[in-house]
Write a protein that binds this DNA or RNA. Structure first.
Lengths: 145, 145
DNA sequence: TTTCGAAATGCATTCTTATACACAAAAGCC
DNA sequence: GGCTTTTGTGTATAAGAATGCATTTCGAAA
């Protein structure tokens, strides 16, 4: 039984990291589309179990990403990328703090990061991984609607 | 008519800055206790008008304070005070950013702030004002339940 | 295999917040 | 002053999320 539950929660993690989910209803719909048949009540409990948070802007974020989200949304000014190298531009002096937040988020397929004064270099495994990271940072920094 | 409305919204500002408000019901009760007789629907509209935001932790914060809240909750490590002088300790390198956020919040009765590397000195008008500021910073930094 | 207990879930309901609708007070406008 | 429009509010209700209760499922123990 816990098979379905764990699979479903993994699916929720993916969905939430890749889309802006605003209601549990749409989460239920997404899950159903992926073959996880469940109800709003179940999703509500999953959200509580997993520690998902709803931002003031109304979108759900993983608890692990909340710190990163706040740092990025407040301090990051831009993102650039070539292949698997992602450059993050930030407010002067805040780079090391952001790098720490990136590391703490334990993003999959991220090798590590280097921080200067206002610039962070994050090295991803592959170009696709880099693209995914770039998208995540962009999503987080735009998450003030 | 707008008399009542403005007074009520000012009251909401005060209440929200000084207490952890988690539901509109509580806000209605507080307002009633202060002589503002109104309903949840009205408070809901006031909240929308004023741009109040509900943090992931479930408490309402003024829109003007949201940036400050995020900065403080992510970067501040401690607060000290003697009379009207409030010292804020933060992550290395982030002091100027936080000082900017404090200034931008345009807190009443705050004269201004100075930033070092990891320390911000904020000068309030009086000792009571300092106390109020200290409490606000503490509230904001604790607002991750 | 049968039985028991814990975990997972659905249904129905409650709680919280937003909103459609109606109405009344206020502000303009002639 | 009347007339119209705008603004503010309450009532009732809808929409979103959480939860008490009952049921089912799964795994362990006998």
């Amino acid at each position: 039984m816990a098979k379905k539950r764990n699979g479903r929660q993994d699916a929720i993690r993916d969905i939430v990291r890749n889309k802006d989910v605003r209601t549990q209803r749409v989460l239920v719909d997404e899950l159903r589309a992926m073959g996880f048949d469940c109800t709003q009540a179940t999703v509500s409990r999953d959200i509580a179990d997993m520690g998902l948070r709803k931002l003031p802007e109304g979108i759900y974020v993983l608890a692990e990403d909340l710190h990163l989200q706040r740092m990025v949304s407040e301090l990051v000014t831009g993102v650039l990328r070539t292949d698997n190298l992602v450059m993050i531009k930030a407010q002067p002096g805040t780079a090391s703090g952001i790098a720490a937040a990136v590391d703490a988020a334990e993003l999959p397929d991220v090798l590590g990061s280097l921080a200067g004064n206002d610039t962070i270099l994050v090295i991803a495994q592959t170009a696709e991984d880099g693209e995914r990271l770039e998208a995540l940072i962009n999503k987080l920094s735009n998450s003030r609607k």
